[in-house]
């Protein structure tokens, strides 16, 4: 079985995996990072979204072996200790979740959205960009509010880091 090496949430990791192992299986079963979820397993629901080399992708439709040498960020990589990432904080503040199953993917998609589209996101943009994330509880209204607020709050984070 090949040995796969990646940098996950800033830390060098390695593990054996068959070529047919999906990235999400490697993250959950080998690395034991279970914040990334499997919902539909058919590239539709977005519960498995992680960032690979800075881009949001569906880890249920990516082979782990194809990510050899990649930089991967999962939901566990966002918070600093007990300080939530501004997007996580915004989901908490605006009740952007009920059961929470889709939330890690929603937040990873939202952070990617801000990286690409900036901090001022219209409701229309957010709804369009959430095409690949399905939530069966909330009806999306509070998710959209949370993403808009989180996007603004991330601007503060960028400024604080300067």
């Amino acid at each position: 079985m090949p040995m796969i090496h990646m940098t996950v949430n800033g830390k060098a990791v390695k593990g054996h995996a068959e070529p047919r192992t999906l990235l999400v299986e490697f993250i959950r079963d080998t690395l034991r990072l279970t914040g990334t979820h499997v919902g539909c397993d058919t590239s539709q629901c977005g519960a498995c979204v992680v960032h690979v080399d800075g881009h949001a992708i569906k880890s249920c439709t990516t082979l782990a072996v194809a990510c050899e040498g990649a930089h991967v960020t999962t939901i566990e990589g966002l918070a600093h200790g007990t300080d939530l990432h501004p997007m996580q904080e915004a989901f908490r503040e605006h009740h952007g979740l009920q059961c929470g199953y889709c939330t890690p993917g929603m937040i990873m998609s939202a952070v990617d959205m801000v990286n690409r589209k900036g901090h001022e996101l219209s409701e229309h943009t957010i709804r369009e960009e959430l095409e690949g994330n399905i939530c069966r509880c909330t009806g999306y209204h509070n998710i959209v509010k949370a993403v808009a607020a989180g996007a603004k709050a991330m601007q503060g984070m960028a400024k604080a880091a300067e």
């Binding site: 590239s43 977005g46 979204v49 881009h55 949001a56 992708i57 569906k58 439709t61 990516t62 998609s109 990617d112 959205m113 690409r116 960009e129 095409e131 690949g132 994330n133």
Partner: peptide, 9 residues
């Protein structure tokens, strides 16, 4: 095409 994650791959 698809959604943002699909378009990235």
């Amino acid at each position: 095409i698809g959604d943002p994650h699909v378009r990235h791959r």
